[in-house]
């Protein structure tokens, strides 16, 4: 296993392995996304309380779940780049940040749109939506810190520290926001409490969550390849790839 971990450190190898994975992962992701959406939109019964507006759940919940997982992926990549000084982990972290931020934004947007028919207001200070907003700020903090450094090597290290601090704080933020929500809000219908979701609605949701995880991986690998080309533009293997690409 250790040689795998070590090989992961060599840019050309990572570039090539990302290419092969993408070749079969992108079609699978697109198929899964389309299938999940059609299944969720057309072939599931409407919710007896919220009617058809609940169908937004098939975008909102997967995006929220993967956005949170994305932050952990970014923080762990940051930790690896700090502790074992692997340049590739720095590239992975750099690639994960914008994708995670975009997914968090999707979750927030769909959550806000979903709030309108159910509560009549565009923005509802529900516990999960507020925590999702704070997660977006954490992501934007990492992206802003990266952009404000000139020396990109140091930028990666600083972002690694910040994402680790963020990772430690996420559970605290989530718990304290949940607690804050329960303090000020009498237990009206819990926006996110549909635990008793019957199977016909659950399966498309699980498919969509898997599709979003695949989507995150695809975007991550694509960003990694682009970042590698940019950082290693003076090396031989990049010139070779460029000349091959130029030839055909």
């Amino acid at each position: 296993m250790w040689t795998f971990f070590h090989k992961l450190g060599s840019p050309p190898w990572l570039y090539a392995i990302a290419g092969t994975i993408l070749r079969w992962l992108v079609p699978i992701t697109l198929i899964a996304l389309v299938a999940g959406m059609i299944w969720g939109l057309l072939f599931t019964p409407p919710d007896f309380r919220q009617g058809d507006s609940y169908r937004i759940i098939y975008i909102h919940v997967p995006a929220a779940v993967v956005a949170l997982a994305g932050y952990y992926v970014m923080a762990i990549a940051g930790a690896i780049s700090l502790i074992w000084r692997m340049k590739m982990a720095d590239v992975v972290m750099r690639a994960a940040a914008p994708v995670g931020a975009a997914l968090t934004f999707i979750a927030l947007l769909t959550g806000a749109i979903w709030g309108k028919p159910t509560w009549g207001t565009w923005w509802v200070w529900d516990a999960r939506i507020t925590s999702m907003l704070i997660l977006l700020f954490l992501y934007l903090g990492v992206v802003a810190l990266y952009e404000s450094f000139d020396n990109k090597e140091a930028a990666g290290k600083a972002c690694a520290v910040l994402s680790l601090v963020g990772m430690v704080n996420i559970p605290i933020v989530y718990k304290s926001v949940d607690w804050w929500y329960s303090l000020h809000q009498p237990a009206s219908i819990k926006f996110t409490g549909e635990s008793t979701i019957d199977p016909s609605m659950l399966y498309p949701l699980l498919l969509m969550i898997a599709a979003f995880y695949a989507l995150f991986t695809c975007c991550l690998l694509m960003n990694i390849r682009a970042e590698l080309l940019q950082r290693e533009s003076r090396t031989q293997w990049v010139k070779k790839i460029a000349s091959e690409k130029g030839a055909d």
Partner: peptide, 27 residues
């Protein structure tokens, strides 16, 4: 510590650290 090297770190520090201040504010 993260922004000390930057010339205009003042505003950036609030974006980085305010999300971490929120639990303290709540309690």
């Amino acid at each position: 510590a993260l922004t000390v090297g930057l010339k205009r770190g003042g505003i950036l520090i609030s974006l980085l650290i305010l999300p971490l201040y929120m639990p303290v504010l709540i309690f």
